[in-house]
C-alpha cells in the first residue's frame, strides 16, 4: 500500500515535469534578458498602479518658480517649462503608456484573431475579401493611417487607442490566418468535425489554442509598437492632450528646449526606449520558449 502511494506520488511528479506550462517557464527563465525585461515590466506595472503614492509631486500642477531646473536633489530628473517634476510626470506617464499599449493590443488582437481565423478556416471568397482588405490597410505606413484615423475621430487618448488598434490589427489577422491554415490540416481538426462539433467550436476550441504561441509572441512585440505609436501621436499633438502626462507628449513639448534644458527630452525618451526594449526582449524570449522546433 505504501509502495503504491509512493508510486502515485512519483507519477504525479512526472506529470508536473511534463506539464507544458512548466516546460515553458523553465525555458523562459533560462533567458536572462527576457527575465530582466519581465522584472522591469512588472516593476513598471506596479509603479503605474501605485503612481499617486509613489510620485513625489503633482504631475499636472507645477511650481512656476522652479521651472526648467536641471536634475537636482529636490527634483531627481529636473523640472519642465511649467515647473512640473519630470520624475512624477514619467511615473504618471507609465499609466497611460501601459494602458494604451495593452488596450490597443487587446483590441487589435481580438479583432485580428477572429478575422484571421475565419479567413483561414473557411478560405475561398471569405478569405479573399478579408485578406485583401487587410492588405489594403497594410499598404499604408501605419503611422500615416493612424494620423488619418485621428483626423476623423478627433484628438484624445481613447481615439488614439482606437486608431492604433485599427492600424495594427491586419498584422494579427495575417499571423493568425497563416497559423490556422497549417493547423486546420491536422487530423485532430478532422476528428473534431467527425464527433459532431460545429464550426465555431472547432475554430475556437480546437484550432485557436494550437496557434496561441505566435499570437502571444506577436502580441508582446505589438505592445511596444503600440506604445511607440502612442508616443508618436502624442509628439504630434494628436494623442494625449496637455496637461496630462504622457511620454510622447512630454517629448513633443520638450523639444523646444532641446539646447538649454535637454533633460526635458532625455528622460521621457529613455523611458520610451527602455519600455519598448523590454517588451521586445520579452517577446523574443517568449518566442524562443514557445517555439516547438527548439524543444528537445
Amino acid at each position: 500500500m505504501a509502495e503504491l502511494a509512493k508510486a502515485t506520488v512519483e507519477t504525479a511528479e512526472i506529470d508536473e515535469l511534463h506539464s507544458p506550462l512548466r516546460e515553458f517557464w523553465r525555458r523562459l527563465s533560462k533567458n536572462k534578458l527576457a527575465m530582466v525585461s519581465l522584472v522591469f515590466l512588472l516593476g513598471l506595472t506596479l509603479v503605474a498602479l501605485f503612481a499617486p503614492y509613489i510620485a513625489p509631486y503633482d504631475p499636472i500642477n507645477g511650481i512656476m518658480e522652479e521651472s526648467l531646473q536641471a536634475p537636482n536633489a529636490k527634483h531627481l530628473l529636473g523640472t519642465d517649462e511649467l515647473g512640473r517634476d519630470i520624475l512624477s510626470r514619467i511615473i504618471f506617464g507609465a499609466r497611460i503608456s501601459l494602458r494604451v499599449g495593452l488596450l490597443a493590443v487587446a483590441i487589435a488582437l481580438s479583432v485580428g484573431t477572429v478575422l484571421g481565423s475565419i479567413a483561414g478556416y473557411y478560405g475561398g471568397k471569405i478569405d479573399l475579401i478579408i485578406m485583401r482588405f487587410m492588405d489594403i490597410m497594410l499598404s499604408f505606413p501605419s503611422l500615416l493611417l493612424a494620423i488619418a484615423f485621428m483626423a476623423v475621430l478627433g484628438r484624445g487618448v481613447e481615439n488614439a487607442v482606437i486608431a492604433i488598434s485599427i492600424v495594427t490589427m491586419p498584422e494579427y489577422a495575417r499571423i493568425v490566418r497563416g497559423s490556422v491554415l497549417s493547423v486546420k490540416e491536422n487530423e485532430y481538426v478532422q476528428a473534431a468535425r467527425a464527433i459532431g462539433n460545429r464550426d465555431a467550436a472547432i475554430i475556437f476550441k480546437h484550432i485557436l489554442p494550437n496557434v496561441m504561441a505566435p499570437i502571444i509572441v506577436r502580441g508582446t512585440l505589438g505592445i511596444s509598437t503600440a506604445i511607440l505609436e502612442t508616443a508618436a501621436l502624442g509628439f504630434l499633438g494628436l494623442g494625449v492632450q496637455p496637461p496630462d502626462a504622457e511620454w510622447g507628449t512630454m517629448l513633443g513639448s520638450g523639444r523646444g528646449y532641446l539646447f538649454n534644458a535637454p533633460h526635458l527630452v532625455y528622460f521621457p525618451g529613455i523611458a520610451i526606449t527602455l519600455t519598448v526594449m523590454a517588451f521586445n526582449l520579452l517577446g523574443d524570449g517568449l518566442r524562443d520558449a514557445l517555439d516547438p522546433r527548439l524543444r528537445q
Binding site: P20, N186, E187, Y188, Q190, A191, A192, H206, P209, N210
Partner: peptide, 9 residues
C-alpha cells in the same frame, strides 16, 4: 495517424 489525430493541448 494516432500521432496527429488527438489535439495536443
Amino acid at each position: 495517424e494516432p500521432m496527429t489525430s488527438l489535439n495536443p493541448v
